[in-house]
């Protein structure tokens, strides 16, 4: 194991993923250093969500390697990958609408008292959830559901959070609250983020990887990327 590998919590090396007959990822590599917020950037349909799903084992790669803390994730079932310490916040949140907020959090426990132990941290980040504790998840607003989805991924004290499009469909004021929460939680947990909102991504992330048409094409420090208007415009269409 190289020194570089030890410093990286997650390394995705040249993965190829198919969905049915469609070759969605054609050589994607991503490195996520321990303690960082890394963002996957790219246009719609580039393969960002599929990259997160491949890491979680939900759409397993057919080729390539994924290492988490030096251990391979390829071939492992999603529940096993989650138990290794990876939390997943999917696009569209996937809140269990029939379950109360409490039950949505309890189901994420891996040990009997996980929620009790993490309650102060979670409700410190998202105080609204305490007030909504006994309401069904389906009764929450979009922003509240997003907070619940992130809180659910924090219950089990995961070492890495994969967060897919947290700002999607949310009002600017809610996005600000979410950014504060992600910034605060990153003190305890490494984050790999997919985000279309470049302003949010650039303010949050330390590092980036650009995925274009199923390939990872650029990676580096976010501070460098924000200086390169031409690159941003070329791959992301944002100026």
């Amino acid at each position: 194991m190289t020194e570089q590998t030890q410093a990286n919590l997650l390394e995705v090396r040249g993965i190829h993923t198919f969905i049915g007959q469609f070759h969605i990822l054609e050589d994607v590599s991503v490195t996520v250093p321990q303690g960082s917020i890394t963002v996957l950037l790219g246009r719609n349909g580039a393969g960002k969500t599929t990259t997160l799903r491949s890491i979680m084992g939900l759409t397993p790669p057919s080729r390539g390697e994924i290492l988490f803390q030096g251990q391979s994730l390829v071939g492992k079932r999603p529940y096993h990958i989650a138990q290794m310490g990876i939390g997943y916040v999917p696009e569209h949140r996937a809140i269990f609408s029939e379950l109360t907020v409490r039950e949505n959090l309890e189901i994420a426990q891996r040990q009997p008292h996980d929620l009790e132990k993490r309650a102060d941290f979670i409700f410190g980040l998202f105080p609204d959830l305490k007030r909504l504790y006994h309401l069904p998840g389906g009764h929450l607003s979009g922003g509240q559901q997003q907070m619940l989805a992130i809180a659910r991924a924090l219950v089990a004290n995961n070492r890495l959070l994969l967060i897919d499009e947290p700002s999607e469909g949310l009002a600017p004021v809610i996005i600000e609250q979410l950014m504060d929460a992600i910034r605060a939680l990153s003190a305890q947990t490494t984050v790999l983020l997919v985000e279309q909102n470049f302003r949010m991504a650039s303010q949050l992330a330390d590092r980036y990887t650009i995925i274009d048409d199923g390939h990872s094409v650029m990676a580096g420090s976010m501070a460098d990327l924000v200086q390169d208007r031409a690159l941003i415009h070329h791959y992301l269409g944002a100026a």
Binding site: M56, Y79, Q83, P90, A94, F96, L99, I107, A156
Partner: peptide
């Protein structure tokens, strides 16, 4: 929860 979304249940470990 599984009745609603069994994939998400699996992703929770």
């Amino acid at each position: 929860a599984g009745v609603e979304d069994s994939e998400m249940v699996e992703a929770l470990g």
